[in-house]
């Protein structure tokens, strides 16, 4: 078993951001209420509610199969693509219910970008990978515009310097970590308001992981980021708030420091001290 206990010092590292200032009105990017998800007859998520602030990183942790990915996929209506999945409840993104009757799920996915567990670049050139989103949404008026968007997105994803000489090389020819950053560039190329990441580092080596974590910390300045991770150190390093899920229930949600240093629920305590997982 891996030792999941956290040394107190780890949380004070330079990456760990200070908790949100209290007492001030908080600008919530995402507000979820009473969200339940069913796969056929089986209920995977039970009446979950959460508030996620803008320009910060929210981490979802919990044992495997507890519904983290399921909940994450609710935020960009990715669950709609699973035939058996049914979502109940209300999720507001920027104050607008994305499950409202007049909402086009395709539009939602442009506003809420997603990075997946396994890097999944299109089998096309690096340029085409990033340009695809802006192109289908008509974000660039000219070829020059498009090039600018691609370059900017690659720069923001911290990949530009590594690939600037081979933008017309295959995206699938990059290393795993580079592919994942390419996927992040592809997501931010359509200027989303939220970026969802489902265990983005689970297929990467430690050095590539460190780079992605650094990148997440930079992106936090401009985006609302929700990240699922099975790695508690990672949650501690990159997030400001953490939500702990168990068996389809949201058990506890608080600042990351609180969750790791002073969990209120017994199950959270057991999990972060490595008693189950």
């Amino acid at each position: 078993m891996v030792d999941f206990s956290i040394e107190p010092g780890a949380l004070n590292s330079s990456l760990a951001a200070p908790a949100l200032p209290t007492g001030q009105p908080v600008d919530y990017k995402i507000t979820a209420r009473n969200v339940s998800v069913f796969y056929g007859e089986k209920q995977a998520l039970f009446s979950v509610g959460i508030d996620i602030p803008d320009r910060s990183v929210m981490a979802f942790i919990g044992p495997s199969g507890c519904g983290k990915s399921t909940f994450l996929r609710c935020f960009n209506r990715m669950n709609d693509t699973i035939a058996s999945a049914r979502v109940k409840g209300e999720i507001l993104v920027q104050g607008k219910n994305i499950y409202g009757p007049d909402v086009d799920p395709v539009q939602v996915r442009a506003r809420v970008g997603m990075v997946f567990q396994k890097p999944n670049p299109f089998p096309k050139t690096i340029f085409e990978n990033v340009a695809y989103g802006p192109r289908i949404h008509g974000l660039a008026k000219s070829k020059g515009d498009l090039e600018e968007i691609v370059v900017k997105s690659l720069q923001r994803a911290g990949l530009f310097n590594e690939v600037k000489d081979r933008l017309d090389g295959e995206g699938t020819g990059l290393s795993g970590g580079q592919q994942q950053r390419l996927c992040i560039a592809r997501a931010i190329a359509v200027s989303p308001e939220v970026i969802l990441m489902d265990e983005p580092c689970s297929a990467l080596d430690p050095i590539a992981t460190a780079k992605i974590e650094e990148l997440i910390d930079e992106l936090r300045e401009n985006y609302c980021i929700v990240i699922v991770t099975h790695n508690m150190q990672q949650a501690a390093r990159v997030s400001q708030r953490t939500a702990f899920f168990h068996l389809g229930y949201l058990v506890e949600e608080d600042t990351t420091d609180q969750i790791f240093m002073n969990p209120k629920d017994k199950r959270t305590q057991d999990y972060i001290t490595g008693r189950f997982g």
Partner: peptide, 14 residues
Amino acid sequence: PPSIREAALGVGAS
């Protein structure tokens, strides 16, 4: 692979 479809849907393709 389904991951290609997810990637496309993820950036807002129909």
